[in-house]
Design a protein around this nucleic acid. Sequence first.
DNA 1: TATCTTTACTAATACGTTTTAGTAGAAATA
DNA 2: TATTTCTACTAAAACGTATTAGTAAAGATA
Lengths: 328, 328
Amino acid sequence: MAKSIKEIAQELNVSKSTVSLVINHKAEQARISKELEKRVLDYVKKVGYKPNSLAKSLATGRSNTIGLIVENIGDSFFGPFALYVEELLRKKDYHVLYSSTLGDPQNAQDIIDFMLEKKVEGILLAPTVDLEEHQRKILEHKVPLVVFDRNSPEVATHYVHIDNGDSSLKACSHLKSIGCENFGLVTIDSDQPQMLARKNAYLQFCKETGMQARILHLPYHSLRQKGMTTLRNWVSKNTELDGLYFTTNYLCILGLKSLRTEEGKIFDFPLFSFDDHELFDILNPKISCIRQPLEPLAKTCVKVLLKEIDRGISIPREYVISTDLIKR
Amino acid sequence: MAKSIKEIAQELNVSKSTVSLVINHKAEQARISKELEKRVLDYVKKVGYKPNSLAKSLATGRSNTIGLIVENIGDSFFGPFALYVEELLRKKDYHVLYSSTLGDPQNAQDIIDFMLEKKVEGILLAPTVDLEEHQRKILEHKVPLVVFDRNSPEVATHYVHIDNGDSSLKACSHLKSIGCENFGLVTIDSDQPQMLARKNAYLQFCKETGMQARILHLPYHSLRQKGMTTLRNWVSKNTELDGLYFTTNYLCILGLKSLRTEEGKIFDFPLFSFDDHELFDILNPKISCIRQPLEPLAKTCVKVLLKEIDRGISIPREYVISTDLIKR
DNA sequence: TATCTTTACTAATACGTTTTAGTAGAAATA
DNA sequence: TATTTCTACTAAAACGTATTAGTAAAGATA
């Protein structure tokens, strides 16, 4: 059904080269006559020719595809982020091959291999832990790489991120300013760098203000099963708590679900979330948060990656996006 | 950096064919000696050979990729759905090329063309309106197509969906059963089939029970700007309303945001949403809903598509997934 | 008229793989 | 010893495109 250049050439009694040149708007530079050009163009249109982009990519070395590797395309951070990325790249005629690692390094490795085989022109990666070697592999293959959200300090790559430490301090100050004198931190037990940075800022805040640090590490790999009860127990044991700071929105949601009482009221001290959520502004109590501005984040990632693709790989840099403190 | 079969062959002083056959585990059937096989295998491993999958696909006609076209990868229905799809396909060694149409037929067409050019082996599509012609094109290209969530009745394709009419009746009955005698329906003005089906069931319910139909059509293309005030005005005009049935969760969220009062309390009659949301169970008032079971939906889609790919295109069928009524 | 330019193309090669038909040499058969 | 059969490979074509060097014919120049 789908005709190839070869067939079209035969049917028009011209050479493949002619057809290819015309199709790629190189008729003039190749001195193809206007008449022939038109004849080819008309015929191509008539039969509805669509190039085989595999063959094209093989010949040109360009796939017009970039890879986007996130933790979970279904969550409220990466999903909308991916949409921005796609929209921005669509304008530049690029398409996105995405994949979710679910935090599993093995998945991540498979995905990276697959993308390299597919000859993506660049990769946008939110790394899981233990991915240093694979990041190196990407760079060895001369494929431009931009890392965002988290990174592995051991491999030098372009890195787009928010200032987790600063933002976390802002969060702490906010809680203090609204009267919390003994708020605790709820985070996960996996050592993702961005989580560590948020926690460390909390510890620093404690040191500076003399507040006692109270930290709960929930099990990343069995949140669903154990998270709720662990959190509930911890809160009821620590009666002096007067506020909770969750290092990410899914933890905050877990908090909301596990700590509410029968009557629907949740409890009587403020909650704070790192990362916003579309319903945080209508919950009771309202949830203040640090908001990662998705659009600037996506824009920067895409801009940096496209530049690498266009001009060749350059010395790694960091790009810091500032966050917003949303008081509610 | 990345070696090709050709180079490997030269370096080993054997033919390309030999290398290719060994790599593809056809050494035995091609009577390659064990020794040579091992020599090749060892070398291939040593240099870290990765096939160029573009060339491979060009030669074999298989891309091991399927296309997933949704409305918005960032929303709480398609995002998690996409994750299920990816997980299921990963097990079968397929990868996903996804794209969001944002409800724009032009985007959808571009995406479909791109995917056909990329030689995806099958397409999973949640159609926007006006896509009949392109669905035909996909089928003309002999690319297996499975449509889900919505469909265009004019083109016969495999179609995986929930029973919108039945589910909508369940919703209406539920509202009545909890005492709503005059509940209204809030939907959008675009004529997506699934939305029409939900509305028609409501109308049928009205006819059968003698309830007066009160329907608000919000503008699909300017929801953000006009939705909130339109809804608010409508509700305050229709004072006899004692319940609201939203035909999708994003409308319900819009309802929650626009109808709540300063004190945080939302209002005093029940809300019902078609489609669940991760926070509906902790809101006040609690939101009952029809839940589309994402996993069975995704499983069926993937199963049907893979079957089409394996055994060739078959006569279109419908697959109906039953929904759950979640009372809260 | 012999040479140089220009015009309007095309032939050939390359991209990296798969696959089938073919082949040289050794071993078996008659 | 001449023929057949195996063994262990390889040559060549194919997938569909892009690109560059080349060429025949016509026109311009001296």
